[in-house]
Design a protein around this nucleic acid. Sequence first.
RNA 1: GGCCCGUUCGUCUAAGGGUUAGGACACCACCCUUUCACGGUGGUGAUACGAGUUCGAAUCUCGUACGGGCUACCA
Length: 531
Amino acid sequence: MSCLLGLVPCPIINYLCSLMSKRVRVRFAPSPTGGLHLGGVRTVLYNYLFAKKYNGDFLVRVEDTDQSRYVAGAEKYIFDTLKWCGLEPDESVEHGGEYGPYRQSERKAGYRPYAEQLIKDGHAYYAFDTPEELEKMRQAPIVNGVKTEQNHSHQYDHTVRLKMRNSLTLPTEETNALLAAGTKHVIRIKMPENETASFTDMIRGEVSFDTSLVDDKVLLKADGMPTYHLAVVVDDYLMKISHAFRGEEWLPSAPVHILLWKYLFGLEHMPQWAHFPLILGPTGKLSKRDGSKYGFPVFAMNWNDPNTNELTEGFKEKGFLPEAFINLLALLGWNDGTEQEIFTKEELIEKFSMERVHSAGAKFDYEKAKWFNHEWLKKFDVPDLRFEVKRLLKQNGITVSDNVLFDNVIEAVKDRCVLLPDFVQQSSFFFKAPETLDIEAVKPKWNDDKKNFFIAYMEKLASATEWNVLALENSFKELATGKGIKPGELQLPFRIMLVGGKFGPPVFKIAELLGVKETIARIQTAINLFG
RNA sequence: GGCCCGUUCGUCUAAGGGUUAGGACACCACCCUUUCACGGUGGUGAUACGAGUUCGAAUCUCGUACGGGCUACCA
């Protein structure tokens, strides 16, 4: 890592130089094991924003090398999520590109040579230990043969590797014989002793590790698949990744990756790294369980686990707009330094900067998330909402035939909706007379005077020459005053007649949109009902 | 247990040695509105603790406490 002159060890200059000297290429590497949760989507988002900001490439490759956890359908789900969020990759399984294949399982054969090279160079070794032997090793150092809370696991590291069955302890001939016989084995990295592995995190600054304290991670599994550690380094190199961003949970494995870069390709080719803070739930790291427990989604879209047949609700189905979703996610751990909170995707791309991402974890607040959606609903114009609202109404058995009315209704109603499904309650009554009226809200104060008022009002409406909010309101108040009733006392009954309940836009606005015929019909129906 | 990361209102955060520690969500009050909202005005509310450096510390250093992550042939 050096800047152009190679003299000034300044991270910022190095960083700027790296931006100038190579094309920005970032990647997201999901494992197809389930739904994409908030943290996952935010990782995608920050990767995407960074790539787009510097006119770079955003690549998605799939980590499907753990077959025991592979879930059919999860890969498609992940790409569907990216599509919904508007964060589509430039290169991926689905989008093609010149660095494929983009599934690790399809790259399987390519990883072993790198692991073998490490062995040749003395940085890795074959290990033949069986699961039972490993278990025995982990039990061994425990005092009095008892596992305790304080001392429960033991690493496969420099303190024990010379007591295990591997190519460091076995004679060369025996190792070769075992390999020739096709004995199950893994390849482990040989972590050096007393070295410091360090790097400059774009968010946290310098982070360093004592290599003596890191274990000899498996690089190549017995089935020939690479572990994440080998795969991420090899693929990032081959795919020319310039910046690698991932969650904070990866920070402890950084020394392994740093060493692999050093041994395999040279540290000067290692991407710039940043580790994002975790997104926390009410009681700790946000988990799938938090969703059902506290009643908010944790996945971007509905995830139906084919193994358990368990459905986890998503933000999409809950009624969030994708624009609001990425907005709220972007602000969970980043801000642009001003007081602006509502950002379009284009603004986020323009203003995003990795240096302003927080280093501390952020607790997810569902109330604030809903506020973002509300703001976006208000910000949206009617045409932006037609499709979704129509779909929701249809789902609830309401067919819209009058498109002019439909637009007017959306306009009248959208500011009072927080989530998309709120449109159903707020607008159904415009297209379909309420099936039940909240009689209890009217009955106690209902009397003949009021009844007569509405009978007279119907007549007045029937002959009205003007049909708009102002005219309706004026004639209503005139008539009420003339009959010696306070107009205010009549507004609630009028609302119940038209809407069925105590909600919706201003009552005269509703009457205006409903039109003369429907308004009179509803008053008549209600009068009959109230008696 | 070991290693790593972190710590400003209940929550998300601003403040890069000098501010009455600012904003947003939530909450409360009032205004608007005789529905519910939107909107407007105001209010309650924070630098984890202890040392040190400094004329001056939320800010720099150290320690303590607390929280989180990792410690798999999972990613």
